[in-house]
């Protein structure tokens, strides 16, 4: 397991927390919690080691498109960069529109 932490400046707050995905083969779990720190902080735990460069690219791309002040925690179980990006987009949508399981 590898732990990666990234922090980026942010200005916009988000409405509500979000939780998407599952720590299953080729997938990941993302927890988004609003913060007032004007930062997007990523805390990543991944079972696949040695892909720091790839993570950085995926995260930087996300941050360039989304300005949210939040703590984003990720538990990764071997998701491809494509899956990571889609899950992140899903998490942002849920935190904007709400995850109504009911």
């Amino acid at each position: 397991m590898e732990k990666l932490i990234y922090s980026f400046p942010a200005s916009k707050t988000i409405e509500q927390p979000a939780h998407v995905g599952v720590v299953g083969s080729g997938d990941l779990e993302i927890l988004v919690e609003p913060s007032d720190d004007n930062k997007t902080v990523f805390e990543i735990r991944t079972g696949i080691t040695g892909f720091q460069d790839t993570w950085e690219k995926v995260i930087e791309r996300f941050v360039s498109q989304n300005d949210i002040s939040a703590l984003i925690r990720i538990n990764d179980f071997g998701a491809t960069p494509g899956v990571v990006s889609i899950r992140l987009a899903q998490a942002v949508e849920v935190s904007t529109n709400g995850a109504n399981h009911n």
């Binding site: 397991m1 779990e29 735990r45 079972g47 538990n75």
Partner: peptide, 21 residues
């Protein structure tokens, strides 16, 4: 006890296995 409560397994991380929230 949903994912935001953060009650994950203390034993998986100790073995370098990614837990779930």
């Amino acid at each position: 006890l949903g994912p935001f409560d953060g009650l994950e397994s203390p034993h998986l991380a100790a073995q370098n296995i990614v837990p779930q929230f």
